[in-house]
Design a protein around this nucleic acid. Sequence first.
DNA 1: CTGAAAGCGCTTACAG
DNA 2: CTGAAAGCGCTTACAG
Lengths: 336, 336
Amino acid sequence: MSIGTVDRVLHNRGEVAESTKKKILKIIEELDYQPNFLASTLASKKSAVFATLFPEPPSAEGYWNKPFIGVKKRISELKPYGIQIEHFTFNQPDSKSFAAEAKKIVELQPDGVVLAPFFKKESVHFIEQLKENNIPFVFIDSEIKNAGHLSYIGQNSYQSGFVSAKLLDLSLRTGNIMVIHFAKEMDNQNHLVQREIGFYDWFQVSNKEKHEIFTTEIADTDTDLWMEKIKKEITEKNIRGIFVTNSKVFYVGRMVEKYGLSDLKIIGHDLLKENTDFLKKGIVQFLICQRPEEQGYNAINKLFRNVVQKRKVSEENYTSIDIVIKENIDYYKEFK
Amino acid sequence: MSIGTVDRVLHNRGEVAESTKKKILKIIEELDYQPNFLASTLASKKSAVFATLFPEPPSAEGYWNKPFIGVKKRISELKPYGIQIEHFTFNQPDSKSFAAEAKKIVELQPDGVVLAPFFKKESVHFIEQLKENNIPFVFIDSEIKNAGHLSYIGQNSYQSGFVSAKLLDLSLRTGNIMVIHFAKEMDNQNHLVQREIGFYDWFQVSNKEKHEIFTTEIADTDTDLWMEKIKKEITEKNIRGIFVTNSKVFYVGRMVEKYGLSDLKIIGHDLLKENTDFLKKGIVQFLICQRPEEQGYNAINKLFRNVVQKRKVSEENYTSIDIVIKENIDYYKEFK
DNA sequence: CTGAAAGCGCTTACAG
DNA sequence: CTGAAAGCGCTTACAG
């Protein structure tokens, strides 16, 4: 039995007689042999290529820069392994651009993919092709169930709505509540809906009937027209609490400043610069945060461990639902 | 110029003529040479030994198991580097046992140390010796300022008290507040004091004078005698909120159950099993958490990056001040 | 189907 | 002070 033969059974490369294979397997077992992956990666000069498919952030302050910061961090740590990253982005409201970028990725034939499955139909089509090509993929941010993904990394959106409800109730003596979706194409943004359902359910379960809850969708924020409407509703409906289901709570902050509104308790998501500014000013009371940098970092790590190190990885990876207030914000900002 | 000579200047091992050294350095510069640490660690079969010095947890559920879980996690990930870990523990109230274990560590001459500097005087003496022997060390949990440590990993205790105050105030319409230290030898447990100061300061700064605050120290919990006393005070002083400065809030939970007290808002620290049970029952409202497993993990990682990989590491590493409630607890429990 | 050899990018004695 | 050689634990052609 030479070292070459052993290597062949170790990696199932065939060309080994069944009898010797058995013999070798037995010895491996007895010795509890653990391959040294330093030596392994050094010798096999093959380097993996990973592709990411995220929404294009509208600016350098946009949410979707954050997961990519984590991606780059892990890639740079993995430098000696020579892993390449190819980053693809699509226009957030445009499912065609998603499909177009997905196609490019299939053509590239990478060794692994991280994607935010924003558009259900297009995502399903994409991952069918990935599966045909035996390319493992990780979902980030939101999830398609039973899709054959290697892993999902993101928040449990329903539970996050639950948390928001609890916090708003805690802060509110009286008055009603408005839930605001700043979004187009709500059908596809399933996690916003999940947050809303969780929010309503908490009040249901807790049997707190002192607040009435209204939901509004705002698709167009190009002008300030929506502000007029919302402001009117706030007065008419005696709104004292506002829950914004995504990272756009800064719009509400701007409205509050514009009209000099007071006595509102406001809760939103994600530590965008403008959001944290409003938190520090005391205009926004709570931000729910999901550590997006960590999500990007972990997604790459999953691929690395699976593709390069051939290890098993866990499928569900819910990130924590962090409650951020003025008093603890400073310990959430930096990603190291 | 042979590869051996190049290696000598790369690692400052001397025995190189000044002129050739300069020449080599110049070429390294031009090529932007980056050593391949896979090859490096593979070839140099030296393995580091790290030592940890933590308090002995009273049981398998004790707080100090958690940092050690993180330590073991990182060590196991670093297995190919062959890093050894030697774990030392001292009895929490006994400074002599701390000193004795510290002495053992100095005799061991490890390549790096992680310690919880519980006893100021003994810790200072210990780190003097570490410095003499050129052994880098990382503080965990609490910190001695300007001690020449490689890094500190833990919470900003003052700020954490601030957060607790804010949350308790949010939950409390009326009534007074009791701060409880379950601790012996308070002088040495500086972070408990810091939390208390932060707690008081928040009420000061926020100018909320609706609650009066009382502080109590409970050194002896071997019997339930303290419960009588506290229960009496709660009634006499109209206490509606309780802040426990460390992980022992389960004692208060037990008291609440024993006497069937109600209408108390209680906040404590750390996700011990018994604490999270009380949180889920609704007896404790908030737990402030500091990700102790992550602290252990990161402490070893700092040593690894500095000692093995010879990289610079950042000195201050405040962990986040996590606000844990019934609704988000499930996403804080597992450490992966 | 099997084995011997070269090489991955470094480190470590050792001869000169 | 300098260079040539062996070796770390693996992978990868290639000869048989």
